[in-house]
Design a protein around this nucleic acid. Structure first.
Length: 224
DNA sequence: GACCAGGCACATC
DNA sequence: GATGTGCATGGT
């Protein structure tokens, strides 16, 4: 009987073999990654890319510049990402926090302990657990495991966690209590779990190490 | 035309 | 505390 840790590592190995490394997060700077984390809430990344492209063209991928923009103009620029009114407010809440407390510079967050940073992020209206953890892991290189609906689907499907009473932190604890806090591992694992959910059925070269990887197909056969 | 996508806050019970 | 609902665009 495999331990939970062994099962988690086996799933990771299979996914990495099947999909290859994902090199997340798509974004050039920590600030851009944070903005992307807010914009992608319940939204496909392709839509987010359009909104970020608009911000880039307008030279607004900077906390101070973005914070100075009025909300109506911001709404127009991020419209392709959907929920543009609520997300404009959420972006504003984030830049207000960053500018007021940290001089608008993500580098100034480096000195802050992870637990305190997480609390501060969660105190910002519009930033919940997944968004906060995405910012911590992908923008700030903190060893925090990001959990999402795909993670829940895969873990329940493979019997690593019971569907009853499933919540974000219980699911997160499944990973953090069984794996070493490794930024590179957490980064890749979450990215691969997202890939299972959105891209597993595209034809791709067979991996010699796992010629008929059953994992993605089992996930395909049922939905949570 | 229906459904879904890398959530979250708020109202209601 | 648990559950339901609004928010919105773009791809399939």
């Amino acid at each position: 009987m495999k331990t939970t840790r062994e099962q988690l590592l086996e799933i990771y190995r299979l996914l990495l073999c099947f999909f290859g490394p994902q090199h997340w997060w798509p974004g050039e700077t920590p600030f851009e990654i944070a903005i992307g984390a807010i914009l992608t809430q319940n939204t496909s990344w392709s839509n987010v890319e359009r909104a970020i492209a608009n911000l880039r063209t307008a030279k607004l991928l900077d906390a101070g510049e973005l914070h100075a923009l009025d909300v109506e103009q911001l709404e127009t620029l991020i419209r392709p990402a959907g929920y543009f009114r609520v997300k404009a407010k959420r972006l504003r809440n984030f830049t207000t926090w960053l500018c007021d407390r940290y001089d608008g510079d993500m580098q100034n967050l480096e000195a802050i302990a992870t637990a305190r940073l997480r609390e501060e992020l969660l105190a910002i209206s519009g930033i919940g657990p997944e968004t906060a953890d995405s910012i911590l892991l992908y923008a700030l290189d903190r060893p925090i495991f990001v959990v999402d609906t795909y993670t829940a689907r895969v873990m329940v499907r493979h019997g690593l966690i019971a569907p009853e009473g499933l919540d974000y932190h219980r699911l997160q604890d499944l990973f953090t209590s069984n794996l070493e806090p490794d930024v590179a591992l957490f980064n890749e694992y979450h990215a691969l779990l997202v890939m299972v959910g959105k891209d597993y059925c595209k034809p791709r070269p067979k991996c010699p190490a796992c010629p008929l990887n059953p994992l993605p197909h089992r996930i395909d056969s049922e939905r949570m």
